[in-house]
Amino acid sequence: MRLHAFYGTALPGIEHDTYSGKLIVIEGTDGVGRSTQIALLRSWLESRGHAVLDTGMTRSVLAGRGIKEAKLGHTLGRLTMQLFYATDFADRLENEMLPALRAGFVVLTDRYIYSAMARALVRGADPNWIRAIYGIALIPDAVFYMRIRSAEELVPRVLQSGRKFDYWESGMDLHQAEDLYDSFIAYQKLMLREFDRMSGEYGFRVIDASRPVRRVAADLRRAVGRLVDSGETAQRTPAVARPTETPPSSPPSEPLAIDAVHRSERAQTSG
């Protein structure tokens, strides 16, 4: 059992509650393979006897449909979009994630506040504003960031999945390029940059998502298995004060292969 820990302002009424489940976040840009990995992880966890709830952005009972409808039109403004996403998030947090965590479930969430914040930031939102709004978010037990090396790498995945380029996933509302392809690349580059910025600050565990599905799945199982079985807990202090150099807390004996790669990459770019 552990006390709820929030990034900022606690949700009203539950500041002193405890829960026994695990909140595990899978983050990453569009087309990186998050839903495939979540499906694999879910059946693996269930076969080992864990109850799993999986959830993801725009799936809330309250706002999911409204967001989808709003995205079909051409009148959805930036601030409105960010707050609609936040409404969706809060509904799922209060009505799905928290009850499941209290009941001892492993909660797998396809994206969390980080994608929502990255989308807001690349659209010029004030970082303090968007962070304050998402201060109601519970600090997860682990955030796995499925990282891809370049935006171009996402393209075959998007096309092969048969989804085509989506207006919003291509950031067409930013008016950076004439066509969907150029806009997609430009937008996803901005998103990758935002994720990399958040990575240290929020203690992401970076997974190299450029590799084949089964290798990524093996990494995730190892890390999630350890978390769920041993009761290993993530650092529960708010991320705001943490220096960016602090690496994610994985034991040195068995690091996630890619953490090291990513860190050295970052060291090179920043040095």
């Binding site: 707050l83 936040a86 409404t87």
Partner: peptide, 13 residues
């Protein structure tokens, strides 16, 4: 369907 938080957020939207 509302909680105080989602009531607040949807009105802000």
């Amino acid at each position: 369907l509302f909680t105080p938080t989602t009531f607040s957020l949807l009105h802000a939207t």
